[in-house]
Amino acid sequence: MTFGIISDISDGLDAPSDENSPTTAPATPSSKADAATPTPTAAAATTNPPSPSATAVMPNVVCMNLQAAQDAIQAAGVFYSNSVDATGAGRAQVWDRNWIVVEQTPAAGVDIDEGNVILSVVKEDEPDGC
């Protein structure tokens, strides 16, 4: 049987100690043009630039089944929409193809963004006005 002592267990999240950290000399500019160019900091190098808005134009999805309506909204460029039971009963839309869109917010032709689309739906065997 072999026993040993583990002297250091690291998960990689600890700051490097002085004995293990590499030493590098600061870069010196080789010309005046290099001196005028700022060097990126470590924080700037790891920061992602802001993403452009996911704005799209709302299609007309009234009288579509919920799945087809969601597909049309995604094809327009927005991937997250909300659906609510139009009867007010608070039923969950578990099988999207069994629900019909009876109202949409915002209206067709309006700019939309992620999460600001609300589709009011009823079950396919309920009166829908379509």
Rank of each mutant, 00 (worst) to 15 (best):
V122E: 00
P127W: 03
V110H: 02
A69K: 00
A86I: 03
A45G: 13
D11S: 14
A33L: 10
S51T: 15
S31T: 09
A35I: 02
I9L: 04
T105I: 13
A36V: 09
N60A: 15
Q104C: 05
I118E: 11
V94P: 04
V62A: 03
E124N: 05
M64G: 04
P26N: 14
N98R: 12
S31N: 08
Q74F: 11
A72R: 02
L13E: 15
A69F: 01
E124K: 00
N82G: 08
P50N: 03
T105C: 07
A75F: 03
D125G: 10
R97E: 09
R91V: 09
I5Q: 02
T47N: 13
P106F: 06
I100W: 02
D34R: 05
T24D: 08
I5T: 03
L66V: 06
S10Q: 15
D111F: 05
A86P: 11
A43Q: 14
L66M: 14
A86K: 01
A107Q: 06
G12S: 14
V117Y: 06
I6H: 05
Q104M: 06
I100M: 08
S7C: 13
L66E: 04
P29D: 08
S81V: 01
Q70M: 10
S21E: 10
T24N: 08
P50Y: 02
I6Q: 08
A56V: 03
Q74A: 15
L66W: 10
D85Q: 12
P40A: 14
P49S: 15
N116D: 11
G115P: 03
A76V: 04
S81W: 05
W99Y: 07
S31E: 02
T37L: 11
S31K: 06
A33I: 06
V84T: 10
V101A: 07
T46P: 07
V102R: 06
N116R: 07
N60L: 13
T28A: 12
G109H: 02
N48R: 14
V94A: 08
G129T: 00
N48W: 10
D111H: 04
G12N: 15
M58V: 05
